[in-house]
Structure formats: structure tokens, C-alpha cells
Design a protein around this nucleic acid. Structure first.
Lengths: 166, 166
DNA sequence: AGCTTATAGTTTGATATCAAACCATATACT
DNA sequence: AGTATATGGTTTGATATCAAACTATAAGCT
């Protein structure tokens, strides 16, 4: 069959104007693949959080970074990057921003003049508690979607996945 | 206490040289938040897949795009962007690349000269089956980590999350 | 001490992404 | 028909990210 690339469509249900709605899309193997759906879920949740935290002038990245510094006073940038699962170079601008806005204080260590020693300032703590309220709202939404029944199990699997590829 | 921002550390376990290992990091609330762990899991799985698919000269994005076109012949770029959960503008360079390498064919529609009509070429199908083998390998790894018991439930929750923020 | 190698952080270059502005075509309304 | 509005796709500008090259210190070895 000299298939001339016409629309041999497998899509059946279509919107009233003939466009393919998301419903009518054929996802093939993607539909049941973890990788793809993990990406979609993360993207969706991330966007939702971005929108929320944008209202208080923050980004998810800055929020996670600030939380980790607050919980681990004196942490270095490399340690931080490993904890946050990002390359250390990605952290340079983030920390720069936090320092510039006076939320984080950065000092050289005495016994190792290469490394920095990060701490959250008083202002940083205030900012953090605002963010925290915002993040809790977001988490509540997520919890509602997941359901209490499955939450713990779901979380545990996420952790295994995060750890699973070293 | 005039807290002068010294290392009042809550971290206890430290590596032999005094650095904070990932184990010893205090994640605070992040430890049990879905958003953060979702991001970590996704990033980890995505990187693993990237490494694998890099060996065959492809990217996860191109792979998903090509699959969706193959499964939905004649699909437009806007439909595609919705299906893949990405902005239509992100798709422009991806499709350009696929077309340039002869994997996808792009034609204007007759009844709507604005829209394109996308189809996978013969070469595209060949490339796709190579990618498919690679992706299946990746999925097997993920399945091993998740475990068959929980797979279906896990997938279902991911889908709910992806759909949950419209 | 002096070389070699490792490590902390920054810089640079490549991608991926979104969002908003934009252009061309379609559709709707008068 | 003619104007206003909507839609498909591209362009542009801003971020976020990684990886590799780089700079400076540090540690180890001879």
C-alpha cells in the first residue's frame, strides 16, 4: 500500500469543529509509560505551584533552596546542590539572588577558603514563613488529588525513583 | 540570644571529612512534600532516560513528539502541544528538527491554510522503532523500582495529578 | 618545598521551556 | 463586503537547567 501519508487517522472522537481534543488523542504506549506520565504530572504540579508562588514574588527553586539553607545552617553550595538534586552551577544565580535581596548570608570558611558557608538572615526567615504558607496551600491541593489512603505509598515510590539512578 | 548566624547546625551525621552527606541533610518539610519529591523523581528518571536515548542520538522530547505524530496522523502542532503538555512555541524547534532530518512530513491543510498537518515518514517510523526499544528498556528499569504491585495505582495517581490543574 | 591531583564555586555554551507579541489566515457579525 | 475577533504557528525574551571548561584553593606525595 503506497501510503501517501494522508490522514489515516486512528482518532475517532473529535470536537465539533473537527479538531482533536485531548480526549481524542491516541497516546499509544505513552499512555501507560511511567516516564511520560511522571513528566506530565510533575509539569502540571510545578506550573500550579509556580503560579501560586509567583503571587508572592518567589520561584519554586528559590523556595526549596531557602528551606534547605534554613534547615542546614552553614551548608555549602555543593552540599546544597546535591540535596536539591541540581547541578552546582545552577545554584550560582539562585544564591546570588537570595544574597542580593538580603535573605541569605554568605561567608567564606576559615579552614577552607574555597567553600562558602550559607545562612538564612532574619529577613530570610520572614520571607520563608510567607512562602511556607503558600507551599502548604499547594500541598493541600495535591493531597486532595492523591487521597490520604495512597499518599504515603505514593511518596515512598517517588523517593525510591529519586534514589534509584545513582 | 543574639544569634550571629554561626553554624548552629541541626545536622549530626557527617562524612568523615566533615561535609554533609545527602544522608545527613535535614530536608525539613520538603521530606514529606509531594511537590518536591515529584520533582526529584521526575528529574532522576528523566536524566536516566536522557542518558540512554542520547546513545541513539535522540532526546525524550523528540521521542514523545514522534510517537504522538505516529499515533495521530495528520495532527496539527497545536493539538500536539496540548497532548504533550507543552506550549506550542516549544514545539516549533522540535518539529523543525524532525522535518529537517526527514522523520516527519509537514503540509499545509487545504481548508485551513494556517494549520499544518503532520505525518511520520518511512524513515521516521524506522527511527521510532529504535527509540521504542530504548524506551522499553527504560520503562523496565522504572517498573523494577516501582514494583508490579503498585504500578497501576501509581500510574493512575500520576494521571490524576496531570489532569488536576486545568 | 614542589609537583600532582582533588575540590568549591563561577563562567560559558547548549537546550528546553513558557509567555507574550506578532503575522497570516479564518470566522463571525453587521 | 467590511470590520472585529479568534486561531495556528513563529519569533522574541526571560528562566532554568546541565555539562564542561576554568580559577582558586587544598591535600597528598615525593
Amino acid at each position: 500500500m503506497g501510503v501517501k501519508s494522508g490522514n489515516g487517522g486512528s482518532r475517532v472522537r473529535r470536537g465539533k469543529n473537527g479538531e482533536a481534543t485531548v480526549e481524542s488523542i491516541n497516546f499509544g504506549p505513552l499512555a501507560t509509560w511511567i516516564g511520560f506520565n511522571l513528566r506530565m504530572a510533575q509539569e502540571s504540579a510545578f506550573q500550579a505551584f509556580s503560579r501560586q508562588s509567583q503571587e508572592i514574588g518567589e520561584s519554586p527553586g528559590r523556595f526549596a533552596t531557602l528551606t534547605l539553607i534554613a534547615r542546614n545552617p552553614g551548608i555549602s553550595q555543593t552540599e546544597l546542590s546535591q540535596a536539591a538534586g541540581r547541578d552546582k552551577s545552577s545554584l550560582t544565580p539562585v544564591i546570588e539572588g537570595l544574597v542580593r535581596r538580603g535573605l541569605v548570608e554568605r561567608k567564606r570558611l576559615n579552614h577552607d577558603r574555597r567553600a562558602y558557608c550559607l545562612n538564612v538572615t532574619r529577613d530570610g526567615k520572614k520571607a520563608l514563613s510567607t512562602m511556607m504558607r503558600c507551599a502548604r496551600r499547594h500541598e493541600k491541593n495535591l493531597d486532595k488529588i492523591i487521597g490520604l489512603r495512597d499518599r504515603a505509598r505514593f511518596l515512598e515510590i517517588l523517593k525510591r525513583l529519586a534514589a534509584g539512578f545513582d
